[in-house]
């Protein structure tokens, strides 16, 4: 049986992979996907803590409610974010973040 440490480490590695994508990729859609990876990594550690820290061997269901809320908010965020990306593409004809320099001083 895996321990809490292993779940948290896997969650941390998943978060690090998502962060790597945000830092290294230049395609705004792929950056957005990596943002979703980071949100999911936080969900994994929440569920792991819920399972390990409940009373009497039962999971702590409040944490799972929080994960449910996070997933719902993430779905809303994806819809709004993709609408913004579509609007951006209409205005600039690009999804490459290095081509978007209008806020450079």
């Amino acid at each position: 049986m895996p321990s809490l440490n292993e779940y948290l480490m896997v969650s941390g590695l998943l978060f690090a992979i998502g962060l790597a994508g945000v830092l290294f990729r230049r395609n705004i859609i792929v950056i957005f996907m990596c943002l979703e990876i980071m949100l999911s990594a936080a969900n994994l550690s929440l569920v792991a803590f819920s399972r390990f820290s409940g009373q009497g061997g039962l999971p702590d269901y409040d944490a799972q409610v929080l994960v449910f809320f996070v997933i719902t908010v993430a779905a809303a965020e994806v819809a709004v974010g993709l609408a913004i990306i579509v609007a951006l593409f209409r205005a600039r004809r690009t999804v490459h973040v290095e081509d978007l320099t209008s806020m450079r001083g």
Binding site: S3, M9, G12, R51, F52, G56
Partner: peptide, 19 residues
């Protein structure tokens, strides 16, 4: 992350089957 997770008190606790 590795340091924080490694120093967690409840960290080495194994997954126990549900009641």
């Amino acid at each position: 992350l590795a340091t924080a997770v490694g120093s967690l008190g409840a960290g080495p606790e194994k997954l126990s089957p549900l009641p």
